[in-house]
Design a protein around this nucleic acid. Structure first.
Lengths: 205, 205
DNA sequence: AGAAATTCTGACCCGCGCGTCAATGAATTC
DNA sequence: GAATTCATTGACGCGCGGGTCAGAATTTCT
């Protein structure tokens, strides 16, 4: 009778273990490379057996794929809520940059994978991710374009601007060490101001 | 009698084939990942047999290592000659950014490997590369610091500035398609002006 | 031409990592 | 407490890629 209830509980448990596996997989993948990390590594790093991982995931590719979709979905949701405010383009772009930078640092391992290891996915999967990344970039581009039309941003190819933003933010995990004087917040602030100073139409002097 | 002459010729021939192998290896590595590309792939991509590659290189790691050292040496030489001029810090930084951006685009495959696949090297090799990268960054930092002292650059942590520069430039190959309206030169110019606008102390208004 | 060095070949070994499977142990349900 | 579902185990098959090796083909020197 509590059929559905039971399945619900089961699903919750499984989701928990899956998340656990994904988290350590991401950490290992990030600094061992996808192919450099075996399912055994992931499992034993959690005190499990390889088979356990295969009980919760179809194969290695699915583990990777979930990492991609989860991180993207989270970022996308964040960015969409930001775009929905009615701030001025410069303020909005600044908070988008800040948000993206913070997100990247917040889950550095996942980010590294997301931007570095797309090539390890299936061709079909790659297409999906490429499309989603384009949509994500599009959010930035629209805001920038709006700013150009309002005369507060220089008329630079949006591709260039947006890729610079993404490029700067994504490079952070490569050098950032927590514990230093540079907090994620300061870094994010700096990125935002760097880009905005470089884009804004100079006040007539 | 022409013993030394003969060895010289041999060396020259071998160097030629080695370069050939390195070039295609770099191309394949760049978009297949180091582990995703077999020695067979490299060889047959040149009409060779696997054994030929092993005749010219000790093992896969050596191929990779040569890619790292060659690209670094070239970049380092370029940057050192730039630093040796006595331009003002802002002009010098601008040309350094331009040069780096152009270098990255000029050998996109090599660059991608250099910045993405350091983890595939030996621990000892990684240390060497890390050190060399730091020295390279140091060239930028010194110029920036000089600019700060002369009051033409804002007093921002140099790490932040330099990593932004490197981050932007290195992200270019990820999206750049040759043949579009955006030439490498325009891109390099944009990067230079973006960073400089973001760093320069605003003229007193 | 014959010897010696150089380049190339193809078959082979070996370890490792993915993924499978039958079976066991642990919970839950009735 | 028997039955069913859920979770876990460990052994195994298998392909693939790195690297070796003995020797063949080719070039170079005398």
């Amino acid at each position: 009778m509590n059929l559905t209830l039971r399945e619900e509980l089961k699903a919750k448990k499984q989701a928990y273990v899956q998340d656990e596996i994904l988290a350590t997989a991401a950490k290992l993948f990030a600094d061992g490379g996808i192919r450099g990390v075996t399912i055994d590594d992931i499992a034993s790093s959690l005190g499990y057996t390889k088979s356990v991982v295969y009980y919760y995931f179809k194969n290695k590719n699915q583990v990777l794929w979930e990492i991609f979709t989860k991180i993207h979905d989270a970022w996308w949701a964040d960015m969409e809520t930001l775009v929905d405010t009615d701030d001025a383009p410069d303020a909005m772009l600044a908070s988008m940059i800040r948000k993206h930078a913070l997100n990247v640092l917040d889950r550095a391992a996942w980010s590294a994978i997301y931007f570095r290891d797309q090539g390890e996915l299936t061709d079909a999967q790659q297409k999906v991710i490429t499309k989603r990344k384009r949509e994500y970039d599009q959010l930035f581009k629209q805001v920038y374009q709006k700013g150009v039309e309002q005369g507060i941003f220089q008329d630079i190819p949006t591709t260039l601007v947006v890729n610079s933003i993404i490029g700067i933010c994504n490079s952070t995990p490569a050098w950032y060490k927590s514990g230093g004087p540079l907090t994620p917040d300061r870094i994010a602030d700096y990125y935002a101001s760097l880009v905005l100073d470089g884009c804004r139409v100079p006040a007539n002097s």
